[in-house]
Amino acid sequence: MDGSIPEPRRTAARRQAEDYETWLAEVWPKFLDAAASGRTFTCYEIADTHRLPDPPNPQAHWGRLMTLLKDEGYVRTAGWACSNRPTAHHSGVRTWRGTAAARRAAA
């Protein structure tokens, strides 16, 4: 009891956005930053690191986000990994890596 305030605990509960456009506006910049870094990542890693909300329809919208990023030329598929999402039971997930265009856009 030194009078300091402890860090708040991170809970398993995540926010969920009410509409797709608002959610996309919040998560898009974080994924562009990840793409510009040049490192390989999964959707969950970025969402968890930045404590991003879930979209209105998580089963469809996370994949749609990555398809949009790929179609816009910001990311490419990099391979597969075991998910570290607690509810995924280490199932296989796609990994992504930013393109040279994403690195140039960040510069």
Results as ranks from 00 to 15, higher is better:
Met1Gln: 10
Met1Glu: 09
Ser4Asp: 14
Ala12Ser: 06
Ala12Pro: 00
Ala13Cys: 01
Arg14Phe: 00
Arg15Gly: 00
Ala17Thr: 04
Glu18Val: 13
Asp19Asn: 14
Asp19Val: 13
Thr22Leu: 07
Thr22Asp: 10
Trp23Asn: 01
Trp23His: 06
Glu26Asn: 02
Glu26Ile: 03
Glu26Ser: 12
Pro29Glu: 11
Lys30Arg: 13
Lys30Thr: 12
Lys30Trp: 05
Phe31Leu: 07
Asp33Leu: 14
Ala34Asp: 04
Ala34Thr: 08
Ala35Gly: 10
Ala35Lys: 05
Ser37Cys: 09
Ser37Arg: 08
Gly38Pro: 06
Gly38Gln: 01
Thr40Lys: 05
Thr42Val: 12
Cys43Ser: 13
Glu45Phe: 04
Glu45Ala: 14
His50Asp: 08
Arg51Ala: 10
Leu52Met: 04
Pro55Trp: 02
Pro56Cys: 07
Pro58Leu: 15
Pro58Met: 14
Gln59Trp: 08
Ala60Asn: 09
Ala60Lys: 13
Ala60Glu: 11
His61Ala: 10
Arg64Tyr: 14
Thr67Arg: 14
Thr67Pro: 00
Leu69Asn: 06
Leu69Glu: 13
Asp71Val: 07
Thr77Met: 03
Gly79Lys: 08
Trp80Pro: 01
Cys82Tyr: 03
Ser83Ile: 11
Asn84Arg: 13
Asn84Ile: 07
Asn84Tyr: 06
Arg85Gln: 13
His89Arg: 12
His89Glu: 06
His90Asn: 08
His90Met: 14
Val93Cys: 15
Trp96Thr: 07
Gly98Ile: 04
Gly98Lys: 03
Thr99Gly: 06
Ala101Asp: 10
Ala101Glu: 02
Arg104Phe: 09
Ala106Cys: 00
Ala107Gly: 09
